[in-house]
């Protein structure tokens, strides 16, 4: 075990953990907006896959990663819009429509992949940018301040989201719509409009989450490459008690433990590999049970708004 807690290992965990956390942050921060407005979007995984595919395909065919990123954001927005139509206008059962959206996105991304690319190809993604001064800090500089753009933006998103949710009128409207849509409605807030906006924000960020994998971190597209990340992202919103800061803590715990378990295996510590892979899941549950302060979920979460009811 002593072998495990050496400086290179700790730095390695920090570096891999930051990279692993990036897609979770985009997706989970987006879902935080969605759920704070009272909508439960379980289809994040499907949106991520579409974002990953479109980001990669556009990036590869146009040669511009920026266009790829834009494409991923747009397709995420469209998928979000679809979810909003189904869950806000048609007031559909949200858990199940999320599963529908997931199947749709997963299937469509694979279908398009097969028909347009036909096989796995790689791309040269967003390159690491070393931040001046900070990047020169011994040891930590390389680990913390030498990442690609999408990694930095993911972490910047946390304070921005917190600011928007807690310090702006828009954020206030979002939270009031999620807590008590009837009261918000009587105050003249357009419940449907707010919910459309948040679900579209969530979709856009989920699309970017997918692109962060396909054109910034792993730089290729393969069918079903998110492998359940979208569902973990939804779980992280619950872990974070619907606050961006809490989501960050959750995403980091999950990712650091995931990086740690890989090091445990690489260092040849005598633990069956399957049990090592289990660790982040077990610890996330335990952390929530014992360490994290609990908060009440948005009162109207996953309840469609019917004017004049109650």
């Amino acid at each position: 075990m002593g072998d495990l807690f050496t400086l290179p290992v700790l730095l390695g965990i920090l570096y891999s953990g930051i990279r692993l956390a990036t897609p979770y942050l985009y997706a989970a921060i987006g879902e935080t907006f969605v759920q704070n407005s009272g909508i439960f979007n379980l289809g994040v995984e499907g949106i991520m896959l579409m974002g990953a595919y479109v980001g990669f395909f556009v990036g590869m065919t146009t040669g511009s990663l920026w266009l790829g990123l834009l494409g991923a954001a747009l397709v995420g927005l469209l998928m979000g819009l679809l979810m909003a139509v189904v869950s806000v206008t048609f007031k559909a059962e949200q858990g199940i429509s999320g599963i529908g959206l997931h199947l749709f996105g997963m299937g469509l991304s694979s279908l398009l992949f097969k028909k347009t690319l036909g096989g796995v190809e790689s791309i040269s993604g967003f390159q690491p940018i070393k931040i001046p001064l900070l990047g020169d800090i011994p040891l930590l500089g390389d680990v913390l301040f030498n990442h690609n753009l999408l990694v930095y933006v993911a972490f910047l998103l946390v304070p921005i989201a917190a600011f928007v949710l807690y310090k702006t009128t828009f954020g206030l409207k979002v939270r009031s719509v999620g807590q008590n849509p009837q009261a918000a409605d009587s105050l003249g807030i357009n419940v449907a409009q707010i919910r459309y906006t948040t679900v579209c924000i969530g979709g856009t960020l989920a699309g970017i989450a997918g692109a962060s994998l396909s054109i910034a971190l792993i730089n290729l597209f393969q069918e079903n490459m998110t492998n359940g990340m979208g569902f973990i992202a939804v779980a992280l919103v619950y872990f974070g008690s619907w606050r961006p800061g809490g989501v960050l803590v959750g995403a980091l715990i999950f990712s650091f433990v995931n990086a740690l378990q890989l090091w445990i295996q690489v260092k040849g510590i005598n633990l069956p590999s399957d049990l090592a892979v289990m660790m982040p899941y077990v610890l996330t549950i335990l952390a929530l049970a014992f360490a994290v302060r609990r908060a009440r979920q948005p009162a109207a979460l996953s309840k469609p708004f019917e004017r004049g009811e109650n």
Binding site: G46, L82, V86, A92, I96, S97, I99, G100, L101, H102, L103, F104, G105, M106, G107, L108, S109, S110, L111, K114, E223
Partner: peptide, 12 residues
């Protein structure tokens, strides 16, 4: 994958 697309649509 087309099956998943159609199932997703059916559910939605």
């Amino acid at each position: 994958a087309l099956i998943d697309v159609m199932l997703g649509l059916v559910v939605l």
